[in-house]
């Protein structure tokens, strides 16, 4: 479930990166690559788990699925927080700087 959630996040971010003119300024490539990296890593994890559990891998208990879904959503939230922090620090549009330097 975590793999599925992160893969969907990666696909959505890649589509947004492809269609958005401000992809460089918004660092959308970084966001998409971050989710793709995590998805690839969880994919390998899933293969090893499948090799161990065989068909049982595809029939998780409801409790495990819920926990994995909760983890997957938390991972996506963390990914967005990391991206936002990087965006605020790099501040490509100078908005943070302008706001901080604003006198009134």
């Amino acid at each position: 479930m975590t793999l599925l959630v992160s893969t969907f996040a990666a696909i959505v971010c890649t589509i947004v990166w492809y269609t958005n003119e401000n992809r460089e300024k918004l660092k959308l490539g970084f966001l998409a690559l971050m989710f793709w990296g995590a998805s690839l890593m969880w994919f390998v994890d899933a293969i090893f788990e499948y090799a161990e559990l065989k068909a049982e891998y595809f029939t998780p208990t409801a409790e495990d699925m819920l926990n994995d879904l909760f983890l997957g959503l938390s991972v996506v939230a963390l990914g967005f927080i990391i991206w936002l922090v990087v965006l605020m620090i790099k501040d490509p549009k100078g908005i943070v700087k302008a706001t901080v330097l604003k006198k009134n």
Binding site: M34, W36, S39, L40, V75, L78, I82
Partner: peptide
Amino acid sequence: KWLNNMAWGGCALLAFEHVW
């Protein structure tokens, strides 16, 4: 830089999973 973004991003998110 593409590789670094994939590697650091993936590691950060997997590290969170391990904390979880």
